[in-house]
């Protein structure tokens, strides 16, 4: 009797350990990640003082002040950690072999999103570093942002797009940012992307590039994206692209939400420039 009971209890213990194994490893992984995050945060928190002590200018392109000439060693280490972790996670995505991201049906999108979620957490550590002025906007940072913009998941692209205003304006960055939108069906990402493009509206060549892209999205981007672009287009309208979008309006399906928003934006622009 005692042996029976002992065997049953042993089996229960073994099974619970076995079934719980995946969750336990996830828990351990989450502890590991949170401790590494805490470490990064502590490094970040000391950096502004260092920057101030070294007399480096703080702020960023967004903030309006000059970016630092050189990245502080602590911030450099944090940035290296971020890049290495992004590379590791990208490898996880490709190999589908990282146990901690397995979902119950691991052939489907769950794994893809679990890895991407981790990339988001890691990439989110960059903005405070750039914003506080601890990281210089150099080629290395630009390449990292480009890498994140090309990451095949919209939440990651969202984090990356928020970094674009800190970078110096360049046709390459604009192309990569537009590429991130082109490969996406996410309305919030387009809404963010259009805000980012406003920085490029003062250059005629850049304006032509993004206007042609947006005109194409309005006409052939599908109903969701077309509506989102139309809703957020007004701040990007100017003398060099208004004719393009007036032409687009005539080709759009009548009475659609997208054409209503576009018409409303164009009308506002016309009143401002030609009178009521």
């Amino acid at each position: 009797m005692k042996n029976w009971l002992t065997s049953i209890l042993f089996m229960v213990g073994f099974l619970t350990l076995f079934v719980g194994g995946q969750g336990s490893l996830q828990l351990l992984e989450s502890w590991r990640l949170s401790s590494s995050r805490e470490r990064s945060h502590s490094e970040i928190s000391t950096s502004p003082h260092q920057a101030a002590r070294l007399g480096q200018p703080k702020g960023s392109v967004v903030g309006g002040s000059t970016p630092p000439i050189k990245t502080s060693p602590a911030a450099r280490a944090a940035l290296v950690t971020v890049r290495e972790r992004v590379d590791e996670l990208t490898h996880c995505l490709e190999s589908r072999d990282c146990f901690q991201f397995f979902q119950q049906d691991d052939g489907k999108l769950g794994y893809h999103y679990a890895v991407s979620n981790e990339v988001v957490k890691v990439a989110a550590e960059i903005e405070p570093l750039v914003e506080s002025g601890e990281v210089a906007v150099d080629q290395e940072l630009i390449l990292l942002v480009h890498q994140l913009l090309q990451f095949p998941e919209d939440h990651v692209r969202d984090v990356a797009l928020r970094l674009v205003p800190y970078l110096p304006k360049s046709p390459q960055t604009l192309q990569v940012a537009l590429g991130a939108l082109r490969d996406s069906a996410s309305a919030p990402l387009y809404s963010l992307g259009l805000k980012v493009m406003k920085n490029y509206a003062d250059n005629p060549s850049d304006t032509r590039v993004f206007s042609e892209f947006l005109a194409d999205r309005l006409l052939h981007g599908g109903p969701n994206i077309s509506e989102e672009v139309a809703k957020n287009l007004f701040p990007l309208l100017n003398a060099s692209n208004i004719q393009l979008f007036q032409g687009v309006l005539t080709k759009m399906p009548e009475r659609s939400p997208a054409s209503s928003y576009l018409e409303s934006g164009i009308k506002e622009y016309e009143i401002i420039t030609a009178g009521y």
Binding site: T6, F10, V12, G13, F14, T16, L17, G20, G23, Q26
Partner: peptide
Amino acid sequence: DRAQATWLAATIALAVFLASGLTD
């Protein structure tokens, strides 16, 4: 003895399993 060990293993595993579920 085995019974004690099994109880201990089961309890630890159950606790870790539940905690990981909550974290998730």
